[in-house]
Structures are given as C-alpha cells and as structure tokens.
Amino acid sequence: MTPTKKPDAEKRNAEREAALTFVRMAKEKGLDLTGPDGLPKQFTKSVLETALDEEMAEHLGRAKHKKSKDGRAANTRNGTTAKTVVTDSVGPVRIEVPRDRDGSFEPVVVRKRQRRLPGVDEVVLSLYARGLTTGEISAHFQEIYGADVSRETVSRITERVVCF
C-alpha cells in the first residue's frame, strides 16, 4: 500500500512548480525577480489588466478587435485610463483600465474609484498555483472582492495569462 499525498502537500508542490515556471520565464526574458518593479509586481499588473480586458469583452459581447455580429456596434472600446492601485504585498501597481464609448462599463475586479486592493496577491496565486477549477476561481473572486466574475471570464483570463 503506497501512502497518498496530503492535499496541502499537493498544493505546495503545485505552487512551487508554478513559481519555478515563472522564475525561469522571467530569467529568460531578462526581467527582475525582486525589487520595486520585480516579477511579483509585473505579474500582478498582467493579471489585473487581463481580468479587466476580459470583463470589457464580456460587457461588449465580443473580444478585442472582433466585429459585432451585425457589423455595427453601438458601443465599442475607447482606449484605457491609467490608474494606480495599492496591493498588500507588492505595493502600488500602475494599470491600464479599459473604457467604452458609452461609459457604461463598470469593472468588477478593480471598481471605479477603487485605489486599494487587499488580497489581490492571493487571487493571483490562486489563478496559477492552486490548480482551481473555473468555478472555484470565480468563487474566490467573490470571496475576496465581492465580485461576480463568470466562469467563462475566469477561463479566458487564465488562458490569456498563461501566455505571460
């Protein structure tokens, strides 16, 4: 009879493997691993901007650079606005928040006028290191931010950020 791994040990192994992957990628691309603009801050920025882009795609009903079904769109993307948010462990992170022409886009992950994101690092880690299902990640966003992020949006976010 072989002993089975405990869930905590499996989680730690998954987190370690994810961390090793990101460290190797960062070194290959010449990115700083530590310091004020190190990998954790860059990674947090990438995840937040990806999540906001996917929220906008869900709001408009189509991906970036895709035409609407009838060829005409009543509402379209209208650039981005720079915003600095403060996280618990990586400090201030400057992100680009997408806008729409109607001004009807209400982001959930980083709300309008929100400047502090407590717990965002846990979300970042859970997206990659825990191996959670899309439903579990969606529930995690709800728990941390009180944000209703659909499973489909979570799936698109995780697919896009993996290419980071």
Rank of each mutant, 00 (worst) to 15 (best):
Ala26Trp: 00
Asp100Gln: 07
Gly30Met: 15
Leu48Gly: 02
Ala73Lys: 15
Val97Lys: 02
Leu20Lys: 08
Ala129His: 00
Pro36Cys: 12
Leu20His: 08
Lys29Thr: 13
Asn75Trp: 08
Gly38Ile: 02
Met25Lys: 11
Lys5Gln: 14
Met1Thr: 11
Ser155Phe: 05
Arg77Leu: 12
Leu127Gln: 00
Asp70Ala: 12
Lys66Arg: 08
Lys45Tyr: 07
Pro3Arg: 15
Pro3Thr: 15
Phe141Ile: 02
Pro118Leu: 11
Leu48Lys: 01
Leu132Gln: 05
Leu125Ser: 04
Arg113Asp: 10
Ile144Gly: 01
Leu52Thr: 01
Ser104Phe: 06
Glu28Cys: 13
Glu106Met: 07
Arg12Leu: 11
Glu55Ser: 05
Arg94Gly: 10
Lys6Tyr: 13
Thr21Val: 11
Pro92Arg: 09
Glu54Leu: 06
Lys45Gly: 06
Gly91Lys: 05
Ser68Trp: 07
Leu48Glu: 02
Val90Thr: 05
Ile95Glu: 00
Glu122Val: 10
Glu122Arg: 10
Thr84Pro: 09
Thr50Lys: 00
Gly71Asn: 14
Glu28Val: 14
Ser155Ile: 05
Val23His: 05
Glu159Cys: 06
Gly35Tyr: 14
Leu117Trp: 04
Ala74Trp: 15
Val86Gly: 05
Val109Cys: 01
Arg62Pro: 05
Ile137Gln: 07
Met25Thr: 10
Glu49Gln: 03
Lys27His: 14
Phe141Thr: 03
Thr44Ile: 03
Arg116His: 13
Arg156His: 01
Val23Tyr: 05
Ala63Trp: 02
Val90Met: 04
Asp100Thr: 07
Ser150Glu: 12
Gly103Cys: 09
Thr87Cys: 00
Thr76His: 14
Thr153Ala: 01
Met56Thr: 05
Leu52Glu: 00
Asn78Cys: 13
Phe141Asp: 01
Thr81Trp: 15
Thr21Cys: 09
Val124Asp: 02
Ser155Asp: 10
Gly119Tyr: 08
Arg77Asp: 11
Ser68Val: 06
Thr44Gln: 03
Arg151Phe: 07
Gly103His: 07
Arg12Ala: 10
Arg72Gln: 15
Glu96Gln: 05
Thr153Tyr: 00
Val149Cys: 05
Val120Trp: 09
Thr34Trp: 14
Asn78Phe: 12
Gly146Gln: 09
Ile137Thr: 10
Asp32Cys: 15
Ser46Leu: 00
Ala9Thr: 12
Gly79Lys: 14
Lys83His: 12
Glu28Ala: 14
Asn78Met: 11
Arg16Gln: 15
Thr4Gln: 13
Thr84His: 13
Ala57Met: 09
Asn78Val: 12
Val154Asp: 03
Gly135Asp: 09
Pro36Thr: 10
Ala51Arg: 02
Ala147Cys: 08
Pro3Ser: 13
Ser46Pro: 04
Ser89Ala: 08
Ala147Arg: 01
Thr44Asn: 01
Ile95Tyr: 02
Lys27Ala: 13
Glu54Cys: 08
Gly30Cys: 15
Asp148Gln: 12
Ala57Lys: 09
Lys5Cys: 12
Lys64Gly: 04
Arg151Thr: 09
Pro118Lys: 13
Leu117Lys: 03
Arg130Val: 03
Ser138Leu: 14
Gly38Asn: 02
Lys67Asn: 09
Glu159Asn: 07
Ala19Pro: 07
Arg94Tyr: 09
Lys6Cys: 13
Thr76Pro: 12
Glu96Ile: 02
Glu96Asp: 07
